[in-house]
Amino acid sequence: MLRTKRFTPYLFVAPMWALLLFVFGYPIVQIFNFSTRRIRGATGPFIGLENYRQIFTDDIFILSVKHNAMLLLAVPILIVIALVIAVFLYERVTGWRFYRFLFFVPYVIAIPVIGHVFSNLLSLNGAVNELLRSIGLGVLALDWLGSEKVALWTLMGVIIWREAGFGIVLFLARLLSLNEELLDAGKIDGANWLQRLWYIIVPELMGVIEFYAVICVITMAAWVFGFVFVMTHGGPANATQVMELYIWKYAFRIQLPGIASAVAVILFLITLAAMVPLFYLRYKDEGTEASA
């Protein structure tokens, strides 16, 4: 048997650790550092938690957190839509390959392109409303992006339209590796389509669903900047303001990177809080499987 000294393996992984610390660790430490300073240019004086006090007393920040929280409502919608469509495709409906392609296309289109196209389609006198008016449904022709009441929901709809594609492909890939005997057994036992979905498919897909849910939570909390920036700029009147845009505003528009960093720290901690339970569950599951 090959004998190695106790620390030898650590020496081998040390370069990778050093690289990871430099690429990820250093910026994170710097963001924490910046969040306690009034940065002008490259540095600034230490001001303790003043930046945090500023943001927690700012109504617009509170509003942006609320909007990110509202966008989380899209997560269960995304999971349900992706799951149902994936199951339909799995059942080989006619033309399922074409539909699979069609559903995945939005996911590969760049967000600025999607944002620009939908901005034009959804303006008050855009194509969508013109169509509604032409078929006598003018009452439904809302100011999708220009009204404070509906702009966030419109944004959410566009995000769902794009992000569902990833879930569909993810779930379908898992479904295709499913042991079909399980579903056949369910059929023989008299389980209907919904029962098979609920009692067989969902439990079998639970690992992938958990993963997709976490990805969606992270997307809604920290990955919607592109949509918001292109489609609404956070408006009208902050109706679609989100934390990422708030960070951008303070970093580049207001030129107070200290406050932007404080919000980035909060966003980082929120994202971490979403990821840790998943890793814990995974760890627990793996432990249970190993002991079984």
Binding site: I60, E148, P236, A237, K249, I254
Partner: peptide, 21 residues
């Protein structure tokens, strides 16, 4: 105009005047 005034007063006031808020 400082950046903060630009985004939180100039823009917000104009948009909220239009929405009637």
């Amino acid at each position: 105009m400082p950046g903060l005034f630009w985004s939180d007063a100039n823009l917000v006031n104009a948009q909220k005047t239009i929405t009637g808020e």
